[in-house]
């Protein structure tokens, strides 16, 4: 982890709660999520769709789509609280201090503006540069993200670029004003597999060179294992496990993480079968009492059905599972055969 001069994390998320008021009542989509990102660090956030990982990312950049709203907790950037800033204040932070990359490069760029114009307007919004200086910087950025013939390509429109090239342009746009943190929401999901690796390598290299921290939201454990320093596993709106990526991949402590790791095929290792986690993540309206994972868990005990575990130290990581509490999971559940 890149060391900061003081030990203050770049981003602190504390007890974040995101609610969606609906006609049938308020849904809690993100429940009591806390994590830090150190300067220059890559934090991977994994989870199934609906686990709340994208919502957390959107809350950090201040772009939760209504009616979703931050109902509790705090988000701090470099010590400054940013979750309750007025729109205009937050706008000045977006792009300048926090960059964002979205899933689909095909739709992230305005089709009617040239790539150069979109770069220049972003640069000039945040930096006091003249038009020609901004253009020079835009060309520099395009070169940096590996677009050949940047001087010429700057006047081209998004439809003249391929998907991978467009995502490079999107990365250039996110880096425009030299942000300290980039929230990358599924940056490779919409791309061909062969291009995914290039984009991830590029993102990793650029962020290391610029000392930019990344919150990498994805459901692809492979991408995380390759890129992230630490990883947070989310399940049903909560963090199930968080820790250094190597530990989480090799010695997962939460039964959900274990299942997730078991479901990744690996070359060379010939196992009889990939493991799979039975059942599906509960809907937000149907989260069971106790641990949200309990209906799918093979290790569960009576305590898991009534008491909700918070993150607790578990080996080198922190996991939200009673298995790692001195009290344990409680009495076994008799009706089902539990082979723990």
């Amino acid at each position: 982890m890149a060391a900061a001069s003081n030990n203050q994390p770049l981003l602190e998320v504390r007890n974040l709660r995101i609610e969606f008021p609906t006609r049938r009542g308020t849904l809690l989509a993100v429940d009591d999520v806390s994590f830090d990102i150190a300067p220059g660090e890559v934090l991977g956030v994994v989870g199934e769709s609906g686990a709340g990982k994208s919502l957390t990312g959107n809350a950090i950049i201040g772009l939760l789509e209504p009616p979703g709203r931050v109902a509790g907790g705090e988000i701090r950037l470099e010590g400054r609280r940013i979750d309750n800033l007025p729109y205009e204040e937050m706008r000045k932070i977006r792009g300048a201090r926090i960059g964002a990359i979205f899933q689909d490069p095909l739709t992230s760029l305005n089709p009617l503006y040239s790539v150069g114009r979109q770069l220049v307007e972003t640069i000039q919004t945040h930096l006091p540069l003249s038009a020609s200086q901004a253009k020079a910087r835009a060309i520099e950025l395009l070169q940096e993200v590996g677009i050949p013939g940047a001087e010429m390509r700057i006047d081209h429109y998004p439809h003249q670029f391929s998907g991978g090239m467009r995502q490079r342009v999107v990365i250039a746009l996110a880096l425009c004003a030299g942000p300290r943190l980039i929230v990358a929401d599924e940056p490779t999901t919409a791309l061909d597999v062969s291009i995914q690796a290039q984009i991830i390598a590029l993102l990793k290299r650029l962020c290391r060179e610029h000392g930019t921290a990344v919150m990498l939201v994805t459901h692809d454990m492979g991408v995380i294992a390759e890129t992230a320093d630490r990883v947070a596993v989310m399940y049903a709106g909560r963090v199930a496990e968080i820790g250094p990526v190597r530990e989480v991949v090799k010695h997962a402590k939460h039964p959900y993480t274990k299942g997730l790791m078991g479901s990744i095929p690996s070359l060379g290792v010939r196992t009889e079968r990939l493991t799979q986690i039975d059942g599906a993540m509960p809907r937000l309206t149907e989260i069971p009492p106790g641990c949200a994972f309990n209906p799918r868990c093979t290790f569960k005990g009576q305590r898991c059905l009534v008491e909700r575990p918070n993150l607790m130290p578990a080996g080198a990581t922190r996991a939200a599972c009673w298995l790692h509490d001195s009290g344990g999971v409680g009495a076994p559940i008799l009706k089902e055969t539990v082979d723990a």
Partner: peptide
């Protein structure tokens, strides 16, 4: 998406 991305760029 491009409007959302424009917002994310702080325009």
């Amino acid at each position: 998406e491009y409007i959302k991305f424009a917002r994310a760029r702080g325009l």
